[in-house]
Every structure is written in C-alpha cells, then in structure tokens.
Design a protein around this nucleic acid. Sequence first.
DNA 1: AGGTGTGAACGTATTCACAGCA
DNA 2: TGCTGTGAATACGTTCACACCT
Lengths: 254, 254
Amino acid sequence: MRAQAEGIDVPVDSSISAIPDAAARRLTQYLHVLQGLSGAERSRLSSSDLAEAAGVNSAILRKDLSHIGAGGVRGVGYDVSALAGKIAMALGLARSRNVALAGAGSLGRAIAEHPEIGHRGFAIVAVFDASPSRAGDVMSGSAGPLPVRPISEIATRCPGLSVEIGVIATDDAVAQDVCDKFVAAGIGLILNFTGTTLHAPDEVEVRPVDLALELQVLAVSGSRHAAERATRNAADETTDNNATGAEPKVSTKS
Amino acid sequence: MRAQAEGIDVPVDSSISAIPDAAARRLTQYLHVLQGLSGAERSRLSSSDLAEAAGVNSAILRKDLSHIGAGGVRGVGYDVSALAGKIAMALGLARSRNVALAGAGSLGRAIAEHPEIGHRGFAIVAVFDASPSRAGDVMSGSAGPLPVRPISEIATRCPGLSVEIGVIATDDAVAQDVCDKFVAAGIGLILNFTGTTLHAPDEVEVRPVDLALELQVLAVSGSRHAAERATRNAADETTDNNATGAEPKVSTKS
DNA sequence: AGGTGTGAACGTATTCACAGCA
DNA sequence: TGCTGTGAATACGTTCACACCT
C-alpha cells in the first residue's frame, strides 16, 4: 500500500480544494488570532496588522486570504468578524465535528481538557481506553463528563454518535489496533499522538502529531545554531549569567 | 523559517548546516522507526523497507540519508544500529538535553509522563507552574519525581540545571510571561504548546505546537476528501459573495 | 494617499532517472 | 543483480513588486 504514490491530481471541484495545504494551516491560525481580537474594539484591521499578530509575512497573509473570498476593502482593510466568518466557512469549520478520543491517560486527559478544542468547533463525544482499570472512569471533557469505555466498544458506539474524527492518545502498543477499529467504524480522519507510524487505507487520512518528535526537531534546530558559532564540542555549559537578555553571539573561538 | 518577524538575518555560512530543515524532521522519524526495529532480528534493511515503515517515499528517504554520511552498502542496504547511530550523531541527539517544563496542568503532566521523551535524549529537570496551589506538588517525570516550583524561580533555578530547552504548557494567559522568563534565564529553545503566538528575540527559537490547530488542519484536509462524496454539508461552491454583514458564524465563545 | 489582490521571480523541497559499486 | 547515492527535472511555497480599487 503506497501511502502517497497517487500523483495524479484528483479533480475535486470544491472550493475548499483550492487551498494549498500550507495556507490552510496558517488560515486556522489567523482565525484564532481574529477570534482573540473580536472582543477588542478593533473592528477593522489591515493585512500587516494581522500578519504582525500572527507572526507571518504580510504578503503571504494576503496570498492566503486571496484563496478564499477574503472580501477585503482596498485602502481600508478587513472587517474582523466578517473575515473570521469567511475563514471558518472556507475551512469548513462552520459546523461542529464530533470527536472520539482513544486513550484516557494523562495525554488523553490533556486533550479532553484542552481549552481550545471545545471552542473551535470540536466536541469530544466518546472516550475509549484499552486498560480495563480505566473503564468506568469519568473524564471531564469540554462538552460535559464522559465515561471511559473499553476500546472494543468503538465499533458499536461510534456510528451512532456521528463521529468524524478519531484521536489516538494511547500507548504506542495499542495505537494500530485502535486505528484499525476507528477505520472499521467508518472514521475517516485520525489524529495520532503516539509515536507509532500508523497504517490505514488510502481513503483514511492519518495525521501524526508526535510530541517527542517536536522536541527533537527543536533540538536539531538548536544544534544548527550552536554549530554556527563553534564547531567544537557543543556539549558544554550555557551558564552565562547575563541577567538581561543582552546575550551577544559568541563568535570568537578558534 | 524564522518564527516571526523577518529581520535581516544573514544566517549561517552553511559550512555545516547541510540538513535542509524538512529533512531533519523526517530523520527524527526514521530514527524512531529504527529504534523500534533494533530489537527485532532485522539487522539490515533497504531504503524501501524503511520508507515503507516510515510512510514516506523511498527516493526522499535516500536523499535525506545522503545528507548525513549514511554509510549504506549498495546492493545490500543499511545496518540498522549503525544507521540509527549515524542519524543520532548528525542530528546532535547523541547527548541528553535538560528540559524545563512550565505548566503542571493536565497537558504538562502528559508531557512529563510521555514515555518517549525520556527515551529520546531528553530529561525534564524542573517543573514550574503559575498557580500557587500547584507549587509543592510532585510530578512523576521520566527522570524521577519532580517538585513543582513557582514560575518566579525560573530565573534562579534554570541556569544551575543547564537547561537548554523550555517547554511551555501553561494557560495561554501566562505563556508570554513564562517565555520571557525562559529567555531571561538564557534558554534558547522553546517549545510552545499554548495557542498564544509568542514573541521572543531572534536568537531564541520558538516552535509552536498547537494541539487544537492540528485538529483543525485535519478537519480541513478531511473536507477535501469528503467533498468527493458529499457528506451532508452541502457547501456552496459559488465563489462570489458580498461581505455585507453576512452573518458571521464565528462566535466569541465564553 | 492607503491597502488589497495577484502575476512573476525566487528559493526550497520532492520526485525522477540513472550512474556506480558490492 | 540490486540497491545506494546523487545530479537533473519538476512541483511547491514564499517573497516581491505593482496594478488597481476606494
């Protein structure tokens, strides 16, 4: 099963399909920033303002907004609430989506209690766990308390709950098993927080989010910076005692 | 790929920075897959095998491995343990890095208890939290029990612990404050799990990992697939529209 | 003026195809 | 023979610059 060997473009005429992936990622961020601003008095803002707030280049922001019908007014800018609505519409986030969560450990609990998830159009409607000791526990999700069920009940409960997204936050060992059960239950979108590389049919989209991997990537980026200044052993102290962040780049050595 | 703010950085003479960013991300994944395989009997494997396991194209895998001195044997493949060592070496993951964690809530606890983090060269050596009620709690990290300290102690404790990476898993409201304190303490690598866009000096690398955002991106990608079969959304495909108070659906939640 | 929208230039990442070696 | 390593070709994403609207 070749994961992404399908190079031929599939003609999907939906307006959503026009958004180039990377832009969609930023659009969700713009939306989040806009929602934070909608309470403020600013009812309009320019692309540069929004770009500043989101931490991106203003040019790419306008390009991103152009993919959706951004309705910006030339010489003025964008209306905050209207733009937020447009983005949410274009991204298909206008309606709420039901989510099933697998894994009632600390990670699963963190996801269920995550303050943003419930406010961005997602509702966790079921929690499953492989451990019998956890079955029967009640987790406090954003949409109310949720009983923890054994994962064997994924097949029976998910279809009735109109679950669209499955989140896997279990131990690595059972991740593939849970994935298979989600797929069997008709779930087409899976968010995988485990370190396991999941295998699923082509029509199922699996998105990995490995927390440890993010740490590693960060560490690698740091090594790159460290390598710039000195090719020596980078295993040393960082014990500078500059109270303020003056911290000049150490370019001496050698 | 600076986080935010363009800046006039004249970065790197690129004498060493051979690894092209995106490749580094995949290399960490290859490393993880290899570590999972090193227990198995397979002592060698080909690029296509590894590509299959990691879910990527074999061509790009070989390209990635070529960036480091991947010592593969033509006609045979790669030696599992040797390759894992090479990747870890090239990525600078050979040594352990000390991590400070801010946020002792459910998300912080999930990170501290994450099984992979302790096994991939990271040691959480300090935990901070803004809430006084949590100060004094003890969290079970991968490197032993850890007392939760108030965030005001970041400045005093981090330097003595050789902390290289700061992880922010607090509430959004205090994220920037914690970030500032980490920066002041000389930490140059920050992993941000909050939804806040953090601002930090250029020499500090801030990597955002927003869990809710990952869910949204997944939902958007899913809309693309779902557009083929038309679930029940009935999204209009007319790209036109006037922005005259068209009823913004996004509500500013509580 | 002030700021959006967008074609064109640019840089980066991925894929292809094949040379070279065990 | 088979698989690695890598230059060339291609696709993609970002930045630039400016036309165009208010």
